[in-house]
Computed example of a mutant assay.
Amino acid sequence: MKKKWIIILGIVIIIILGLGVKFYMDEEKSNKEMMNVVYSDEAKEVFEIRLKALDAKALTEEGVIHSYKIDKESIKHNPMGGINVTLIINNDSELNITYTINNFNGELSGGASSISEKLSKLLGRWEENK
């Protein structure tokens, strides 16, 4: 009888370990897919269009936004769909924009965005309460 319980316990442990490994592998695959999307040429185009909508002279010497880089640690699955990603502007972590990018009908598009207070002020989009 004791041997039977040990065998059952062993099987349960193997099943739990197997499910854990599968969950981990699925999570890794999902993270890799999100990285591929965020670092794709199509995403770069979406980011640059959105940046130029905020600053007509973005990515030039005359613009407020001279450069951007993707904050790799910020890339997360959005529970409402899409991928959340933060762009660091001009290598200043206080100048950032967080986007939700989505894939609709096989085409990437920028969804909601959130602009840091410091960047918003530089772009002239911030009004102090009087």
Rank of each mutant, 00 (worst) to 15 (best):
M34A: 11
T100R: 13
V21N: 09
A58G: 06
K76L: 10
A56M: 12
K72M: 08
E28A: 14
I13A: 14
I70W: 00
I7Y: 12
Y99H: 06
V37K: 00
E127F: 13
M80Y: 14
A58Q: 08
E48A: 01
N90E: 00
W5E: 12
Y99C: 03
I11W: 11
G63D: 02
S114H: 01
H77L: 11
A43C: 03
K22H: 07
V38G: 01
V21Y: 13
E33M: 11
L108G: 09
T98K: 07
G20R: 06
A53K: 13
S113K: 12
K72V: 07
I101A: 04
N102A: 09
A58T: 03
G63A: 09
G63H: 11
N129R: 14
I49P: 00
E127W: 05
G10N: 02
G110M: 00
F47D: 06
S116W: 08
N105G: 07
E42C: 04
D92F: 06
K44V: 05
R125E: 07
L95D: 00
K3Y: 10
H77G: 10
G20C: 03
S114L: 12
I16C: 07
N84R: 10
K32C: 04
D41W: 08
N31S: 10
K69F: 08
S116H: 08
N90Y: 02
D92E: 15
E61Q: 13
V12F: 14
E61S: 15
H77K: 15
S40V: 05
L9K: 11
I115Y: 08
